Measured scan of single mutants.
Amino acid sequence: HHHHHGSGALAALHAEGPLAGLPVTRSDARVLIFNEWEERKKSDPWLRLDMSDKAIFRRYPHLR
């Protein structure tokens, strides 16, 4: 159930192989992290948004 927010940013994801479903670039990863943060913020208003490279690598090590 993907609803768009204002920016309408869509992340490019790997379609197949071992990385299927994972973001292709760091900016794609940022979109995913932001979208998930927006969702989680509803139940956790104090949740901090962390889109640093460090956060991205921790989450998606293949982007190193």
Results as ranks from 00 to 15, higher is better:
R26I: 15
H4V: 12
D44M: 12
R58S: 12
R64G: 12
D50H: 04
H5C: 12
R48H: 12
M51S: 08
K41R: 13
G17L: 02
L63H: 00
G6N: 13
L10C: 08
E16G: 11
L32F: 05
E36P: 00
P61Q: 03
E38L: 15
K42R: 07
A12S: 13
A55L: 11
P45M: 09
H3S: 12
N35F: 14
H3D: 15
R48P: 15
E36Q: 08
E39K: 06
L19G: 03
F57Y: 12
R58Y: 09
G21P: 02
V31L: 14
K54G: 08
H1W: 07
S7K: 10
R40L: 12
F57E: 13
A29R: 00
L22E: 03
L22P: 01
H4Q: 09
L63Q: 00
D44E: 11
W46Q: 09
G21N: 06
P61A: 03
A15K: 15
L10T: 12
M51C: 08
Y60Q: 00
A11R: 02
G21E: 03
G17H: 02
D28Y: 03
E36L: 08
A29C: 01
A12W: 12
Y60K: 00
P45V: 05
R59D: 04
S27E: 15
L19C: 07
K54W: 12
S7F: 14
W37S: 02
K41A: 12
R48C: 07
H14I: 10
D50I: 05
G6A: 13
H14D: 02
L22T: 04
P18T: 07
E16L: 08
G6L: 15
H62T: 01
N35E: 09
K54D: 15
H62R: 00
R30G: 02
L63M: 02
L19S: 05
T25M: 05
A29Q: 00
S43E: 05
K42S: 10
R30A: 08
R30W: 05
R64M: 11
N35R: 15
R59C: 05
G8C: 09
V24W: 05
D28A: 04
P61N: 02
A12V: 13
F57G: 08
E36D: 08
W46T: 15
P45R: 10
K41W: 06
S43H: 12
E16I: 12
A11K: 04
L32K: 04
I33W: 02
S7W: 13
S43F: 12
G8H: 14
A12Q: 12
I33T: 02
E39G: 07
H14Y: 08
M51W: 10
A15H: 12
E38D: 10
I56E: 00
H62N: 01
F34V: 07
I56D: 00
L10H: 15
A55R: 05
K42Q: 12
I33R: 00
E36I: 06
M51T: 10
W46K: 14
R26S: 10
L13I: 14
A55W: 04
D28K: 01
G8R: 04
S7A: 09
L19Y: 14
N35L: 15
L63E: 00
D28M: 03
A20V: 12
W46V: 09
T25P: 00
D44L: 06
K54R: 09
M51H: 05
P23G: 00
R30Q: 05
K41H: 10
H5Y: 15
R40A: 14
A29D: 00
K42C: 05
R59L: 11
V31E: 07
W46N: 15
D44A: 09
W37Y: 12
E16Y: 14
W37T: 01
V24G: 02
D44H: 11
N35M: 13
L49T: 03
M51N: 05
E16V: 13
A9Y: 15
I33F: 05
R64E: 12
D28G: 02
G21Y: 04
I56V: 09
A15P: 11
H14P: 02
E38V: 11
H4N: 10
G8N: 13
D53Q: 05
H62P: 00
Y60R: 00
P18R: 06
I56S: 00
W37I: 02
S27G: 15
L32D: 01
G17C: 04
L22W: 04
H2I: 13
A20H: 09
H14W: 14
R48I: 06
W46I: 10
A9M: 14
H2N: 12
G21R: 05
K54P: 08
V31Q: 10
